[in-house]
């Protein structure tokens, strides 16, 4: 059996194998995002005062996964994959801005910087994987590129130190939670496709 299938000049592994890889990668990103938030929160304890302010919604809050117990509509794997793809695409630019502007913070710890860069790289890879899976399942139909826009760069570059710290705090928190959405979506797709054997 050949290692991969070639379509439109690209090499595609089997569907089950690709899903297995995607789930694994998303789990890693999710864990690292939690670690990033914990370290940032520990270093900038003053952020507790920041939390007293009003929490802003994440820019991808509107992309919610349906509850598994919902009986209204049977969730289709393609629906879940599309939600994951939109989430990853929506966070591509913000992660890049985060990596580029974190050094502006005073006394930023090197671990925080390296962790942020790693999350950005892996997220980009995961996005490519999810798109490949969608191409296989939809036979090349890649429509519906709409995803929420990002307008937080101005806050990251604010002259006010407190405003800037709050902006970074909120962004890192949102990244962690949204990454869990992607992970859960991919796991649900894997269970459906593999006839719930590995679940």
């Amino acid at each position: 059996v050949p290692t991969c299938l070639v379509r439109n000049g690209r090499c595609f592994a089997s569907l089950e194998e690709m899903l297995e890889r995607a789930v694994g990668l998303s789990e890693e990103i999710s864990k690292q995002a939690l670690q990033l938030f914990t370290e940032f929160d520990n270093q900038y304890a003053q952020s507790k005062q920041l939390i007293n302010k009003n929490f802003k919604k994440c820019h991808t809050s509107s992309l919610e996964l349906p509850k598994p117990s919902s009986t209204s509509v049977q969730t289709h794997p393609i629906t879940l994959l599309k939600i994951a793809s939109k989430l990853l695409s929506a966070w591509k630019v913000p992660l890049n801005d985060l990596v580029n502007n974190l050094p502006s913070l005073k006394d930023i710890h090197p671990n925080i910087l390296s962790k942020a860069r790693e999350i950005e790289a892996k997220s980009a890879g995961l996005l490519e994987g999810v798109k490949s899976i969608l191409i296989q399942m939809q036979n090349g139909d890649t429509e519906d590129e709409n995803y929420p826009g990002w307008s937080g760069l101005a806050s990251l570059q604010s002259e006010n130190e407190d405003d800037r710290l709050f902006a970074y705090y909120n962004m890192i928190r949102c990244e962690g939670r949204e990454t869990q959405k992607v992970e859960t979506a991919l796991k649900m797709v894997k269970c459906k496709i593999s006839n719930e054997n590995n679940c």
Binding site: M188, K190, C191, K192, E196, C199
Partner: peptide, 9 residues
């Protein structure tokens, strides 16, 4: 827990 759906691992 609803494990079969992948909601949980």
């Amino acid at each position: 827990t609803d494990v079969k759906t992948g909601w949980f691992t």
